[in-house]
Amino acid sequence: MTENNLDNRPVYHAACHCGTVRFTVLLTDGLRTVRRCNCSYCRMRGAVAVSANLDDIKVLQGEEVLTLYQFNTGEAKHYFCSCCGIYTFHQRRSSPHQYGVNVACIEGMSPFDFAEVPVNEGRSHPKDSVGGTSGIAGWLRYQANPEIPEN
Rank of each mutant, 00 (worst) to 15 (best):
T2F: 05
N4A: 13
N4W: 05
N8E: 15
R9C: 00
Y12V: 03
H13K: 05
H13D: 04
A15C: 08
H17W: 09
R22Q: 15
F23Y: 15
V25H: 01
D29M: 11
D29I: 08
G30M: 04
L31Q: 10
T33G: 08
R36I: 03
C39L: 05
C39A: 02
S40K: 10
Y41H: 14
C42I: 10
V48R: 03
A49C: 10
V50S: 04
V50N: 04
V50T: 07
V50K: 05
L54M: 03
L54F: 00
D56L: 00
I57K: 02
I57W: 01
K58D: 13
K58Y: 03
E63K: 12
L66N: 02
L68A: 04
Y69I: 07
F71E: 06
T73I: 06
G74H: 02
A76G: 03
H78F: 12
H78G: 06
Y79R: 05
F80M: 08
F80K: 02
F80P: 08
C83T: 14
C84E: 05
G85T: 08
G85K: 09
I86T: 13
T88P: 01
F89W: 03
F89Q: 05
Q91L: 05
Q91Y: 06
S94M: 12
Y99W: 06
Y99E: 01
A104K: 14
I106F: 00
E107K: 12
E107D: 15
S110L: 06
S110Y: 07
S110H: 08
P111V: 10
P111E: 15
F112Q: 14
F112D: 13
F114C: 01
F114G: 03
F114Q: 05
A115H: 02
V117T: 06
V117I: 09
P118K: 13
V119E: 08
V119A: 02
N120M: 14
G122C: 04
G122Y: 00
G122M: 01
R123S: 07
H125S: 09
K127S: 06
S129K: 14
V130C: 10
G131D: 06
G132S: 05
T133W: 10
G138Y: 15
W139Q: 12
L140W: 15
L140G: 07
Q143R: 15
E147Q: 13
E147F: 11
